[in-house]
Amino acid sequence: MVALAKKVDINNSIASLKQKVAMPYLLLLPGMLWLIVFFLSPILTLVSTSTKEPGLGFGEFIQTYRWANYTDALVNLQEQFIRSFVYALIATAIALAIAYPLAYAIAFKSGKWKNVLLVLVVAPFFCSFLLRTIAWRQILAQDGIVFKSLVTLHLISPDTRLTSSAFAVITGLAYNFLPFMTLPLYASLERIDPRTLEASGDLYANGIVTFRKVTVPLSMPGVVAGTLLTFIPAAGDFVNAQILGNPSTTMIGNVINAQYLQTANYPLAATLSFLLMLMILALVLVYIRKSGTEELV
């Protein structure tokens, strides 16, 4: 009887152990399945489309494993690739410069207004980002406040144009992805124990030294996450260049979008998309290594 009870007990504990081993997989299954079916397999489809060649009929493409599509695309469109990365880099730098003090103020100086201010950072999302981008075009226009005041201050000559320029595109990019920069920065700053900052002060560090030696290093995970979440969408964006730019500010996103939806040259569009993805991934991996942040998600 006792032996039997023991056996049941062991069986039960084996069952519960099995359940424990299976549990994480059960939790992961639906989400992972979704990502495999709707993210991973489309990317594989993309790769397979990228090496096709036009067939005889219109909109017909034959798989010929033409990897030269990639070198062709790189040679023909290197200018747009480089421009996209340069614009994205400048926009990320501007967004960081604006968002860091913003996040710092929300984390340390806002008192009971903290949550309200945080919501204010995300709220612009609800006023469509297209509407806001169109608004920038009006703000920077010849008859807008910004242009007129800059001319009055003699900072620009009356015949320069602020709209339809690289300046406008980069302003738009920096603006549109600002919340993506601010939120991770805030999250990492907020986690800093104020006592570490006090300790630094107690050890005779002044405000600037404390900021440079304590605050900044502790907020590095936020800086890495924020710059990535700004740089990645900015490098692949085409809306800002379309609404705020001119033909000489065309980014790679504009080319991909046009190849897909207007020219219907799917192999070229797929080649460019996959190249963009690879370049961004390569940059991201180097950046993560350099900044020494391992756990990103």
């Binding site: 993210f39 692949g236 964006d237 085409f238 991909i256 797929a270």
Partner: peptide
């Protein structure tokens, strides 16, 4: 991955 690539693929 840029949204463009997600959407297009």
């Amino acid at each position: 991955t840029p949204e463009l690539v997600l959407g297009a693929s």
